[in-house]
Lab assay of single mutants.
Amino acid sequence: DTCAICRVQVMDACLRCQAENKQEDCVVVWGECNHSFHNCCMSLWVKQNNRCPLCQ
């Protein structure tokens, strides 16, 4: 699966965690819609949006 926000494989660290060298801290979360995201990506997304980027 791919993170619906950053488009990186969810089993890999997101771009932000890769840049900050925090790959082991990058975890996967699932929305109520069952789409998967990196927690970092979702945390930033929900500050500006309240819907899944794929379900909009």
Score class of each variant (00 low, 15 high):
Asp1Cys: 04
Asp1His: 02
Asp1Met: 01
Asp1Tyr: 05
Thr2Ser: 07
Ala4Gln: 04
Ala4Pro: 14
Ala4Asp: 10
Ala4Met: 10
Ala4Phe: 10
Ile5Met: 09
Ile5Ala: 11
Ile5Gly: 07
Cys6Ile: 00
Arg7His: 12
Arg7Gln: 12
Arg7Cys: 11
Arg7Met: 11
Val8Thr: 12
Val8Pro: 04
Val8Asp: 12
Val8Ser: 12
Val8Asn: 12
Gln9Trp: 04
Val10Asn: 15
Met11Glu: 07
Met11Pro: 10
Met11Asp: 15
Met11Ser: 14
Ala13Asn: 05
Ala13Pro: 09
Ala13Cys: 06
Ala13Leu: 06
Cys14Trp: 00
Cys14Phe: 00
Cys14Thr: 02
Cys14Val: 00
Leu15His: 07
Leu15Arg: 13
Arg16Gln: 09
Arg16Trp: 04
Arg16Met: 12
Cys17Glu: 02
Cys17Asp: 06
Cys17Ile: 03
Gln18Cys: 09
Ala19Ser: 08
Ala19Glu: 02
Glu20Gly: 09
Glu20Met: 09
Asn21Ala: 09
Asn21Ile: 02
Asn21Phe: 07
Asn21Arg: 07
Asn21His: 09
Lys22Asp: 07
Lys22Ser: 09
Lys22Ala: 11
Lys22Asn: 07
Gln23Val: 06
Gln23Cys: 07
Gln23Gly: 11
Glu24Tyr: 05
Asp25Lys: 15
Asp25Met: 05
Val27Pro: 02
Val27Trp: 08
Val27His: 11
Val28Phe: 11
Val28Cys: 01
Val28Ile: 07
Val29Phe: 07
Val29Met: 11
Gly31Cys: 07
Gly31Tyr: 05
Gly31Gln: 11
Gly31Asn: 15
Glu32Leu: 03
Glu32Ile: 04
Glu32Lys: 08
Glu32Arg: 06
Cys33Trp: 00
Cys33Pro: 03
Asn34Val: 04
Asn34Arg: 07
Asn34Ser: 09
His35Pro: 01
His35Ile: 00
His35Val: 01
Ser36Gly: 12
Ser36Cys: 09
Ser36Arg: 15
Ser36Glu: 06
Phe37Tyr: 10
Phe37Lys: 01
His38Tyr: 01
His38Leu: 00
His38Ala: 01
Asn39Cys: 04
Asn39Ser: 10
Asn39Lys: 13
Cys40Arg: 04
Cys40Asn: 01
Cys40Ile: 01
Cys41Lys: 03
Cys41Asn: 01
Cys41Pro: 01
Cys41Ala: 00
Met42Ile: 05
Met42Ala: 15
Met42Asp: 04
Ser43Ala: 08
Leu44Gln: 05
Leu44Ile: 11
Leu44His: 08
Trp45Leu: 11
Trp45Ile: 06
Trp45Cys: 13
Trp45Ser: 13
Val46Glu: 14
Val46Ala: 10
Val46Pro: 11
Val46Met: 11
Val46Asp: 13
Lys47Val: 05
Lys47Phe: 02
Lys47Asp: 09
Lys47Met: 05
Lys47Arg: 09
Lys47Thr: 12
Gln48Tyr: 13
Gln48Asp: 10
Gln48Met: 09
Gln48Thr: 09
Asn49Trp: 06
Asn49Gly: 14
Asn50Thr: 07
Asn50Trp: 04
Arg51Ile: 10
Cys52Met: 03
Cys52Gln: 01
Cys52Trp: 07
Pro53Gln: 06
Pro53Val: 05
Pro53Trp: 03
Cys55Met: 04
Cys55Ile: 02
Gln56Gly: 11
Gln56Arg: 11
Gln56Ser: 06
Gln56Asp: 06
